[in-house]
Structures are given as C-alpha cells and as structure tokens.
C-alpha cells in the first residue's frame, strides 16, 4: 500500500524584473506562482539623481490583493515585503530579512506585480525579486488563501464568547491577534478560548492596554491550545498551527467601558482540493 505524503515544495529559480524606464502607474508582472509558496519578496528603485520614488509591490493570493507601498522609497535601497498580521496588506521594511519575516504566503494562484507611481528619474530602474516554490504536478490538495477572519464586536457583552472563526476545516493558523478600545482608555482583560480537534482548552486571559494589538502564541510547555500572549507585535511569534477542525473565540472578562470595542483577527489558510 502506498503512503500518501505531504506535498513537498520544489524551489524555483528566482523570478524578477529589472525594468528600465518603467511606465508611470503601470503594474509589471513579476511572477505567477501556481500551487506554491512565496518565500521572499524584494522591491527597489534606482535613478541617477538618487531621488526617492513612490513604489509598490502588489501580491494577489487567490483573489485577495495585498499591497505594499512606500511613498519615499530611497534610491538603491532594497525593501523586503512581508504580510501584515493585522490587515490585508504588505509591510515594506529595510530590515535584513531573517526567520522572523518568514511568514508564509501560500495559495493556489499567487501573482506578484510591481509599479512606480512617481515620474522617472534619469536611468530609472524598477526592480522586484520573488523567491518561491511550487508543489509537483499531480498534487490534488494544497493550501488556499482566505481573507483574514475579522471580529469587530462593538460593544461586547462582558463574559460572552465571540467567534473569531468557527469550524475551520484542515487549516493552518498563522496569526491570532486581539485588541480592545474604550473611551476611558482603560486596560481590560480578554480571554481566548480554543476548541481544536475535539479538545477544548481553558481560556487564556491577558490584560490588554487600550487600543493595543496583542499576539497570542503557543506555549511550548502546555497543550499548544492554551495560547500564551505577548505584548510585542513580532513575527518571531509565528508558528504553524495545523489542525483538522478548530474554533477560536474571544471574550472580555472585564466590565465594559464606554463605546467599548472588541476586535479579533485570524490569518489562516485552508488545505483544499486543487480545482
């Protein structure tokens, strides 16, 4: 009997453009990735005057667009793009890429485009590089991208659980984050509860300052479902969290403030049949 294995990504040659004299506001195709994962994205512009330029990288994952744009992109400086865990966007940074930025971008179809939105300088060049891999031909199942799950509960009822998502099937969870806002600017206690593959985890509580996103991460000494929290917005707290069936809920255990808001976000992918 054959053993069905987890499809393995095959690294592809880097896709790139070095577009001389790019047309203003035109989106140049850099890569189309079929059933794959993008490992790294970089964007750069150069011109003889070393002027800053408005440049953009646009990634479309299974129909959802993620734009990373920097209005004053420095000539000759390479920008690295990675996913924002808060919104459907890309963040551009000049920080050296490292494991902390290795947030996976997977999908059935991923396209990468680049554009310049400022009039060209002399010898203007727009550069964009894409490192990616694809699974072999004959793969019937692969991760499909979905827009970030959003909970905006305004106002919440204290001690009431609200779904960030309910009943995700064959999922890979990338980020779970939460925030609370109230007119008194008071800190509040939130609780996260998970039910994953038939096991309900006790809620993990944490105090959230007003209008501050906090990240929920795995605790390696516990069951992996009681998510720990951290104050820092940090990709170092990304861990692949795979499960067959899962629900994550958020509650406020403190008293409700004036104009209280309770927000949750979950970034995830679903392992689905290739159409």
């Amino acid at each position: 009997m054959s053993v069905q294995i987890n499809p393995t990504l095959e690294m592809k040659p880097i896709a790139y453009i070095d577009q001389a004299d790019p047309t203003l506001d035109k989106y140049y195709s850099v890569a189309t990735v079929a059933l794959g994962e993008v490992f790294a994205l970089t964007l750069e512009q150069t011109n003889d005057e070393t002027d800053n330029k408005d440049i953009e990288i646009l990634v479309t994952i299974d129909g959802t667009e993620y734009s990373g744009r920097i209005v004053a992109g420095v000539s000759g400086l390479t920008y690295f793009a990675y996913r924002s865990p808060i919104e459907d966007a890309l963040i551009l940074t000049t920080a050296v890429r490292n494991a902390g930025y290795a947030v996976p971008i997977r999908g059935h179809v991923i396209t990468v485009e680049a554009a310049i939105h400022t009039v060209n300088g002399t010898n203007q060049v727009l550069e964009c590089d894409v490192q990616y891999g694809e699974v072999p031909t004959g793969t019937y199942w692969w991760y499909k991208h979905y827009p970030t799950a959003v909970l905006n509960q305004d106002p919440p009822v204290s001690l009431t659980l609200y779904d960030i998502f309910d009943g995700l099937v064959d999922a890979r969870l990338i980020f779970v984050i939460a925030r609370q806002i109230n007119d008194e600017a008071a800190a509040k206690v939130l609780e996260l509860t998970t039910t994953i593959d038939g096991e309900a985890a006790l809620g993990t509580t944490a105090t959230f300052n007003n209008n501050t996103w906090r990240y929920w991460t795995r605790d390696p000494t516990r069951d992996g479902r009681s998510l720990a929290h951290d104050t820092a917005y940090n990709f170092f707290y990304y861990y692949a969290f795979d499960f067959h069936l899962g629900t994550i809920q958020l509650a406020m255990t403190s008293a409700i403030g004036t104009n209280q808001q309770l927000d949750g976000r979950a970034v995830y992918e679903l392992y689905e049949e290739v159409s």
């Binding site: 054959s2 053993v3 069905q4 294995i5 987890n6 499809p7 393995t8 699974v135 072999p136 004959g138 793969t139 019937y140 199942w141 064959d170 994953i196 593959d197 096991e199 516990r222 069951d223 992996g224 479902r225 969290f241 795979d242 499960f243 067959h244 899962g246 392992y271 049949e273």
Partner: peptide
C-alpha cells in the same frame, strides 16, 4: 515513490504528550 492521491490527508493536532 511519493503519492499525491485524491484521498485527503491532513495534520491533526494531537494531545500534548
């Protein structure tokens, strides 16, 4: 020989050992 069949497999989260 790898098999990427139509029977769906996926990761299940096991209880903490």
């Amino acid at each position: 020989m790898p098999v990427y069949g139509r029977n769906k497999f996926y990761w299940y989260k096991d209880s903490l050992s």
